[in-house]
Computed example of a mutant assay.
Amino acid sequence: MSDVLVGLMSGTSLDGITAVVVRFVEAENGAVTPELLAHVERPYAAGQRARLAAAMQGASAAEYTRLDFALGGWLADAATAAIAEAGVARGDIRAVASHGHTVWHLGSQGTWQFGQPAVIAERTGLDTIADFRVRDVAAGGEGAPLVPIADALLFSRPDAWRLLQNLGGIGNVTVLPPLSGPDADLTAVRAFDTGPGVCIVDGAVRLLRPGLAFDRDGVLALQGRAIEPVIEELLRDPWYAAPPPKSTGRERYTAAFIGDFVARCRAARAGCSDEDVVATAVWFTARSIALAVQRFVPQDVGDVLLSGGGARNPALREAIAMTLSPRLVRPFGELYFDGDAKEAVAFAFLGWLHLRRRAGNVRGATGARGPRVLGALYPA
């Protein structure tokens, strides 16, 4: 038995929209295998990125309303492009599953994603499932991370513990015990945000080198020297010591935070170069991940798989591998498909679960009172 869904993701890195078309094949024993049929990246234009960044700092009700509908159109366009690449008839697609874009996230106090799903349904002519996080929050959870259900049921190992570390704008990790089969006990699965992914690295690059969106190939970071006192000071923030479940977002790592980060680096080292600032951001991210693993992952881990935009940065990959040594650290794509598609595939899977009235949250990840069917359906 198989179903084809479209998955849409706009992450906190503000890079753009990821759209996938994926077929989920369910075996007789209930095991599910994802087959990636298409993967499209639609980078945000400078004006689009600026509007989203401004909205995440605060905007008028009129601008939020306009941007919600505009983003719905951008998401619909990305879905249409992915469907064309996949060569699948629309009549064979069960639904579109859209994460949308997080404007504000307050954990158990509330969460807000927009990218109007009614616009997606109207433009694509397909049932659209969206608003995945709010039901978990209503059940007392953090509303994040939600990817762990896909990690556990699609990408776990039967013989060893595994970590799946995502490096979007925010970093988050899924801690997977050995799991086998669709009826595996998920009570030991844990997941939580580790802190920044690439938001500080990218933010510093955009501030220091106008015109650059990010540190392509880690060129700047690899030429710099990290400033250890700045890293140590920032890691003393009580948030990093707080036990899971926990989540964070751009509301913590704001433009003001990044400006202060650059200023701290300049003050801490005479002659501090732009490259030193970017290297410090890279190593701060890597150290925050290592600290989370040290404090909250006592199990022996077989391997660590990196996904998300930050996994393309060789400087960040190298720093994470060094801080997590002797664990084997490698890109998600070495074992599965392109890691940049992973979160969009995960939300397509959440849509697949929604259609079957099956829970999409993992209590050990979000802290919700129990399993809940996630998402709201917008008929075509």
Rank of each mutant, 00 (worst) to 15 (best):
Q48Y: 09
Q48M: 12
R49T: 01
A50I: 04
A53R: 09
A53P: 05
A54D: 14
A55P: 00
A55Y: 01
A59I: 00
S60Q: 13
S60K: 06
A61D: 11
A61F: 12
E63P: 06
L67I: 12
F69A: 15
A70D: 14
L71Q: 09
L71R: 03
L71A: 08
L71H: 13
W74F: 11
A76T: 07
D77C: 11
A78N: 11
A79S: 13
A81T: 11
A82S: 05
A82R: 07
E85R: 14
A89N: 15
R90M: 11
G91L: 08
G91R: 08
G91H: 08
I93Y: 00
R94A: 15
R94C: 14
A97E: 07
A97C: 14
T102N: 06
V103C: 12
W104E: 09
W104G: 02
H105E: 10
L106R: 15
L106M: 15
S108D: 13
S108Q: 14
Q109F: 15
G110E: 11
Q113V: 08
F114K: 03
F114D: 03
G115F: 01
Q116D: 15
Q116C: 14
P117K: 01
P117M: 03
A118K: 10
A118Q: 11
V119R: 13
R123W: 10
R123E: 01
D127L: 02
D127I: 04
R133G: 04
R135W: 06
D136K: 07
A139P: 06
E142D: 09
P148R: 01
A152K: 05
L153C: 09
L153G: 03
F155E: 01
S156P: 02
S156C: 11
R157Y: 09
R157N: 15
P158A: 15
D159T: 13
D159H: 11
W161A: 15
R162E: 07
L163I: 14
L167E: 00
G168I: 06
G169I: 02
G171M: 05
G171E: 02
G171D: 02
P177S: 13
P178N: 12
S180Q: 15
S180A: 15
G181M: 11
P182G: 11
P182W: 03
L186A: 04
